[in-house]
């Protein structure tokens, strides 16, 4: 069973007046089949955690370890991490002019699976996955994320999640900027992947709204660059009622 283990992770970024530590000792274990929600106020470092796991060059790891099935993730390049089974659904997916969605998906699937998918089954696979996410077929010929609405971008991210079948999926604020209908479609996509029991999900969110559609096994409160409280789904209900105030006051960020 695939397991992502994060131990005492420290991460810095370069800012205008020097180096700033964003993550200050994150500990978390995500196993295949589990869903963890990470919730926290703006600026608490949630997205930094997501991008650090994926290997974004902007972030410097200054301490701690991340392993996937015992393999050192931090030693891997960005593409190696993806091929090892890590997937990051991005909050702000990037436009790639000149590259069509269909070309992108096939190139990506070829890289992840280690061989080019058979054309006939692949076309069917993509078509069905797009239908499930209410993505218009014309999307395949558009350039990656170019001119996509916010909802289209997020559905495109989940389409990749469904096609690439990672071991661990990190969903960075996938719910932000979505109306209720889009949120439902996207959540259904995530749930389909979860129901296979083959993916560990790390759901990063600011709002509890998405947790009505995607039920987490574990909820963690993130503040000041680390996890300050962990619990079951009931912790989300508490946050819904009380907000993050209890965690942002009282010196956690010191």
């Amino acid at each position: 069973m695939a397991t992502l283990e994060i131990r005492d992770l420290h991460v810095t970024v370069e800012v205008e007046n020097g180096t700033k530590e964003i993550l200050k000792g994150v500990d978390l274990t995500v196993k295949q089949g589990e869903t963890h929600a990470i919730m926290g106020p703006n600026g608490s470092g949630k997205s930094t955690l997501a991008y650090s796991l994926a290997g974004h060059p902007k972030y410097t790891i200054t301490g701690g370890t991340v392993t996937l099935d015992g393999e050192d993730v931090l030693e891997m390049s960005v593409d190696e991490r993806a091929r090892a089974g890590l997937f990051l659904a991005m909050q702000y997916p990037v436009e790639v002019p000149g590259v069509s969605v269909s070309n992108f998906l096939r190139t990506s699937a070829t890289a992840i699976r280690g061989e080019a998918p058979k054309l006939r089954t692949w076309v069917k696979e993509v078509k069905e996955a797009m239908e499930r996410l209410n993505i218009d077929p014309s999307f395949a010929e558009r350039n990656v994320n170019e001119g996509f609405s916010g909802g289209e971008k997020k559905r495109h991210e989940i389409l990749q999640l469904e096609l690439l079948k990672p071991k661990v999926a990190v969903l960075d604020e996938t719910d932000s900027g979505l109306d209720v209908d889009a949120l439902r479609v996207v959540s259904e996509g995530v749930n389909r992947v979860r129901e296979t029991g083959e993916v560990g999900t790390l759901l990063i969110t600011h709002y509890t709204r998405i947790l009505r559609y995607i039920k987490p096994d574990h909820v963690h409160v993130f503040s000041g660059g680390r996890i300050v409280e962990s619990g079951g789904a009931e912790l989300a209900d508490k946050l819904e009622e009380e907000g993050y105030e209890a965690y942002t006051k009282g010196g956690v960020s010191a």
Binding site: A54, S77, D79, A82, V96, P97, G98, F104, T107, S108
Partner: peptide, 24 residues
């Protein structure tokens, strides 16, 4: 950022660049 996005989908850096330029 484009390079990161493509690499985060398993595509090696040189292939990512090729993909973009060919498409262009």
């Amino acid at each position: 950022e484009q390079l990161f996005y493509l690499m985060a989908r398993g595509i090696p850096a040189d292939e990512a660049r090729r993909l973009v330029v060919r498409g262009f």
